[in-house]
């Protein structure tokens, strides 16, 4: 497992670096300005992949949580621990890039619309998962409580989305207009490339984080074993 993670990280690291540089070049030099919104629309190529990665990460968290409660194998918990943290990171990126785009495009930093509200609440839920884990006295208790909370958080996301959607109505018109006209080929290519870049980047982060979590667990086990010997 450790060998696999190390190899995965070594393979993914150069790919992710090259792809990220290429993605930045495409976003700033290759893709044309959007007709209505102008250059500010370029943030879309990082914002949307980050959002998709956030929700993908919640899905990984759900799988890890159910897997841990079912099998009690620590590998599942290491996976969900990594997915929680990286999900929170990408969620933060979404919440920062969103308003930067929204201010010029919608004229406001924030609106209580379904996607925005769901992302914000999701950020709070992921932070709560990390808090509970940090407060727990031992690893096993933290893993169990965080798994239960992870399942609750993942199940809650679609309900929150639906509830806020009904509460505040549809997404502002800007997005609808964008959806009607198909993306210009260069825009589509840039978007898909950024999407792929973010998935490779996510895979890299996940491999590194899980490897570090495993090292942390081994250190902890060694500390516990040595203090047990002394007593």
């Amino acid at each position: 497992m450790d060998g696999f993670l190390r190899r995965a990280a070594i393979v993914l690291l150069p790919i992710a670096m090259v792809m990220m540089l290429a993605a930045i070049w495409m976003v700033f030099a290759y893709v044309p300005d959007e007709r209505v919104m102008g250059p500010v629309q370029r943030i879309f190529y990082f914002h949307v992949p980050a959002a998709i990665i956030t929700f993908f990460s919640v899905f990984v968290l759900l799988a890890g949580s159910i897997g841990y409660l079912w099998t009690r194998h620590t590998a599942w918990d290491q996976l969900s621990r990594a997915a929680t943290e990286i999900g929170l990171l990408f969620c933060t990126i979404v919440l920062i890039t969103g308003p930067i785009w929204a201010k010029p495009a919608w004229g406001t930093w924030w609106t209580w619309e379904a996607r925005l509200t769901t992302t914000l609440v999701l950020w709070l839920l992921l932070a709560a998962c990390m808090m509970v884990r940090a407060y727990a006295d031992n690893r096993d208790l933290g893993a169990r409580l965080a798994s239960v909370l992870g399942i609750i958080a993942a199940l809650d996301v679609p309900i929150i989305y639906k509830a806020v959607d009904w509460w505040r109505g549809q997404h502002p018109v800007v997005f609808k207009a964008g959806e009607k006209t198909p993306l210009e080929p260069r825009m589509l290519r840039t978007f898909l490339f950024c999407m792929a870049t973010f998935f490779v980047f996510y895979g890299l982060l996940l491999a590194i984080r899980v490897a570090i979590v495993r090292l942390e667990d081994r250190c902890q086990a060694l500390v516990e074993a040595s203090s047990g010997d002394r007593a």
Partner: peptide, 30 residues
């Protein structure tokens, strides 16, 4: 459920509020 979680890690109302309000968002809206 969340009260049990908060009590297991020895935190009371403060953690419970942090857990309960985000999860219960749809319920409060409704």
């Amino acid at each position: 459920l969340l009260g049990a979680i908060a009590s297991r890690v020895g935190r009371g109302e403060a953690l419970l509020a942090t857990l309960l309000f985000p999860v219960a968002t749809p319920l409060f809206i409704s």
